[in-house]
Amino acid sequence: MLLIHCPYCDDTLPELEFAYAGEAHIDRPKDPSALSDEEWRDFLFIRTNVKGIHAERWRHINGCGRFFNALRDTVSDRFFTTYKAGEARPDTTELEAAG
């Protein structure tokens, strides 16, 4: 079982307490009616689907209830870090260079 660190509880807890919530850092367009159908489709459905380090949302649903963000390697399932919602994505250039 994966162990995930919740940045709000400041505790590392079993995966069963958490729910996955999709890719992180996708901003809702300020004025949706100004978007073309294709742009709106891209916002709703099109994701990067990276192989490697992925910024994603998780919710500590069976715990403190908060959403937070995590950096996870989609190949190895390893979690590099987790951080509170609203914080910027940590710099991962070194991690990516290290492969």
Partner: peptide, 9 residues
């Protein structure tokens, strides 16, 4: 602590 017990919160 709030947690799960066999899928029940």
């Amino acid at each position: 602590k709030r947690t799960v017990f066999d899928y029940a919160q």
